[in-house]
Design a protein around this nucleic acid. Structure first.
Lengths: 331, 331
DNA sequence: TTGTAAGCGTTATCAA
DNA sequence: TTGATAACGCTTACAA
């Protein structure tokens, strides 16, 4: 009552600009009037800063919430955001772009996770706001990645170290097709920009070095990283003749499903078939037998990407080390 | 070029207000100029509507992303939001309230999930915006809940149906204490407003009806629904003398951990010990043995709450049916 | 069919 | 230490 809007603004944002007594009175009166402090929309409009960070997921939101790897990333992201008093707006590149545009104007910066389609990527880039890519790369844009080829090579080398092997690969997003299927040589000749292709390279190199290379028809394409799809592929692979005794999987979800299917088929892991994963999700430690896998520290990835974004290191391209976690599903 | 701001606004929002030709020209020129469509902050300020829905989680964001039940709820929520072209702002009631205030001014409505602290609840209520509670109730506010007492009663009745039993309960958030511990009678005399108390009532009633009631020192309190805490409690319970042959768990995460601990201790499930869960998370189907549990359809809960919010049914208090899923961990 | 102008709630600047 | 004022970018009556 009887103070200007400017003074009220100062009461909320710059305590040093007015007497403690007046500030207190204003805050008390505001509470009484049911005023909840500055309106974010107006404040953003005026300041050009919203304190909101947008995370753009390459998959649909609904799917992402069901994916343990995405969840770990988001854990890391939100950890840092909360610490820095920023808010989290979740977006998906799957959404109709005209609707998305509006939402993309709000955040102060973006984290883009996964293989983002060109249109979305360009659109976000044109906002001119800082951004950090995760599991995705582009010149001149900051990013956090792992060395997928190397990680895949390491675990495959371990699995194929001794003896002769019949190898099958349960691959994730290897081609642009929405059903589970095996590959052909033609599929592999088409370039496809997914990290899974790097993982395949690592598997292939390890196999060649160990004298047990595999043909395209021993490689399964799984379009979505969920149990349903993994189960179809695992069942096909494990009933194939000759039956593979090494199953190289491109995700832990796939590998855990494969372990279960193997048990259902009466196969012993790792005696009859060795199974490897990729990701290092929490569940991989707890399966029976526990899963040998490549840990990619998704939580750390989320934290690091968020820190890079907030600290304005918008040029660095970080490649994180993976860690081999050898457990009961191999050997 | 040579058109007014109003016409541009119409080009984006009301195609029928101008000629198709002009509209097209405007859109094309806008793209060329790097204009990305209406700014959300400004639009919100003017329209009083942001198309953003806030989900306020009772636990920290970081924890919520690791919790399968919360993830299922968020799946349901985002499913409907995407369908209706709304955006998702994730908030936590754990955050410093002065920071939260600003963010809470943006959304058009709220979904509050879990046992929200009084201060946050009152603050959100005072915004006057529509809200729907999930797993939480309050007079005059729309909510979606399940009948926890009944669900717990049903599964406990099944587990305790035949024979005599030594029962232990692995409970979730039964008292206000941040470590795993057993309860005392005094603990139970203090009122505590968590849904877990209803589940305990259901367990107790079923036990009494089957002549195998249990004492407070057979009830474990687990403060956070994660594997680490569950493992501590499960180990204590399964090594207690006399050893329980029925373990009633208040979440699937706890029960799945208990199954694993039982195996590590050389106990056979369900022969040596019967174990029941609560929630119906996807993993419960895939454990070995599969878990008998109470399905609460979290995805549906999320969908329903979101629809109620968006359709303005801000009065209804819905109680959803739970479904008993009897699998290999009992009988 | 198109343009003009007011106002949404803030905050930064400047003057009192 | 406080107050007046303009501007942030948009939408919507209303006027042309």
């Amino acid at each position: 009552m009887g103070v200007s809007t400017a003074t009220i603004s100062n009461a909320f944002n710059r305590p040093d600009q007015l007497s403690a007594k007046l500030r207190e009175r204003i805050l008390r009166d505001a509470a009484k009037l049911g005023y909840h402090g500055p309106n974010l929309a107006a404040r953003t409009l005026r300041r050009g800063e919203s304190d909101v960070i947008g995370v753009i997921l390459s998959d649909s939101l609904t799917y992402s919430f069901s994916d343990p790897v995405a969840n770990q990333l988001l854990q890391g992201v939100s950890d840092v955001l909360v610490e820095r008093n920023k808010h989290l707006l979740l977006l998906s590149s799957h959404v109709d772009s005209s609707e998305q545009r509006g939402a993309e104007s709000l955040p102060d910066g973006f984290i883009l996770y996964g293989t983002i389609d060109q249109a979305t990527f360009e659109r976000v880039k044109r906002t001119g706001k800082p951004m950090v890519l995760v599991d995705f790369e582009s010149d001149e844009v900051a990013s956090v990645n792992i060395d997928n080829e190397k990680g895949a090579y390491k675990i495959a080398s371990h699995a194929l170290a001794k003896g002769t092997h019949e190898v099958a690969v349960l691959g994730l997003k290897l081609i642009d097709f929405d059903r589970v299927c095996r590959l052909t040589q033609a599929d592999l000749d088409i370039e496809y920009k997914e990290i899974s292709r790097s993982r395949l390279k690592g598997f292939t190199r390890a196999a060649e070095e160990n004298g047990c290379s595999f043909k395209p028809d021993s490689i399964w394409h799984i379009p979505i990283n969920n149990t349903t799809n993994a189960e179809i592929a695992a069942r096909e692979a494990l009933t194939k003749i000759p039956r593979p005794n090494v199953l190289l999987c491109m995700s832990d979800v796939i590998a855990l499903t494969a372990i279960r299917v193997a048990r259902e088929l009466g196969l012993s892991v790792p005696k009859d078939v060795t199974i490897t994963g990729f990701d290092g999700i929490p569940e991989s430690e707890r399966s029976n037998p526990p899963l040998s896998t490549v840990c990619q520290q998704s939580i750390e990835k989320g934290k690091l990407a968020t820190k890079m974004l907030l600290d304005g290191e918008s040029r660095e391209q970080v490649v994180l080390e993976t860690k081999l976690e050898l457990r009961g599903s191999t050997n």
